[in-house]
Amino acid sequence: MFYHLATVLLAALFFAQGKYVRRVTPKLPEPEGLRKGIYGNGSPTSLLIMGDSSAAGVGVELQQYALAGSMLNALGSHYQVAWELMAKTGDTSTQLLEKIQQLETHQHYETVVISIGVNDVTGLTSSTKWTHNLSLIAHTLKEKLGAKRVLFSSLPPMHLFPALPQPLRWWLGTRAKQLNALAQVVCQSQPYCHFISAPFPIDQRFIAQDGFHPGPLAYQLWGEYLARVLQEQLTKHY
């Protein structure tokens, strides 16, 4: 109730603060490096990572230090991973769904990891649209790409982002929590879909210079955590 009231009463302030943040926040590029390949030794498996700027690795200079590289580094001693990264800065759940629908049907991945939602928060995606998109994303990945599991990584704690001034930080952070709760409900309704409440430590050591994206240490912790979750599921499967 208070959130919706604040949305109405402080809309002009939120708009002004958002415009200011976009103007002063450094625009970091996506990291260089491979976005597809085969990595590691062991039992064969396949992995697709999709999403927005954090999935793409914004905040580090090379993919080996980003989410994909951190996951592969953790998995590589036990699995031979055929992997691919399909992520783009600025994408919302709607844009991600459109890209998935356009993928070729001959592509198959056992596991799909998705990090999406920050741009849905800032772009004011409705709750209905968000849940519809996530449900269709998971269903399409299973039916079209043969995904055995879809791992939705939780939105980061936007209420702690140092780049955001108050009360905008609180407002966006509250919405991020709401989208996380909705994503968890979506995943509970589909047995192959899993909501992963990822550990996002908020300390200046873990934040990129823009005050908005993960830094190398955060990507390492995040990637290793997702790799552990995936390895547990793969062990059960095998």
Results as ranks from 00 to 15, higher is better:
H78N: 07
T94I: 03
L168V: 07
L155S: 04
L5Q: 12
Y238A: 00
N180S: 10
Q178M: 14
A6V: 08
R22I: 01
G223I: 01
G123M: 09
A66N: 04
I196G: 00
I137T: 10
N180P: 05
R228P: 02
S43Q: 12
R205E: 15
Q102S: 14
V58A: 01
M86G: 03
A16T: 01
N73S: 11
L179F: 10
D120F: 09
Q178E: 13
D120C: 05
Q166S: 13
V186W: 12
A56K: 02
F200E: 04
P31A: 02
S197F: 06
G40C: 08
E84L: 03
V21Q: 05
T92D: 07
E98R: 15
W83R: 05
Q166G: 07
F206E: 02
S135I: 02
L182K: 10
S43P: 08
I116S: 08
G223N: 02
L141R: 07
T89Q: 12
P29Y: 02
H213N: 09
W130Q: 05
W171C: 01
V112Q: 04
L172I: 07
S53M: 00
K88A: 07
L141N: 04
Q209L: 13
E84M: 05
A74V: 00
V81D: 08
F15Q: 12
R149A: 04
P31D: 02
R169N: 10
S70R: 00
I202A: 00
Y39V: 00
K88V: 13
T131W: 05
A55T: 09
F200K: 02
W170E: 02
L217I: 01
R175L: 07
L136Q: 13
Q220A: 08
Q220K: 14
C187E: 12
D120N: 12
N133K: 03
C187F: 13
A181Y: 09
K148Y: 13
Y39M: 12
R35H: 06
L141C: 15
A176L: 10
P156L: 14
L10E: 13
L182Q: 10
Y219D: 00
N41L: 11
R149W: 05
G42K: 01
L75I: 01
F161P: 00
R175C: 02
P156A: 15
I38D: 11
S70D: 01
L182C: 04
M158I: 14
I100S: 11
S54T: 14
I207S: 07
A82V: 03
A147P: 02
H139Y: 15
F152N: 01
R23N: 06
G146C: 08
N133E: 05
A56P: 06
F161S: 04
G123W: 14
A181R: 10
Q220R: 09
K19S: 15
L5G: 10
A138V: 03
M50G: 02
L72C: 12
T235K: 14
Q64L: 05
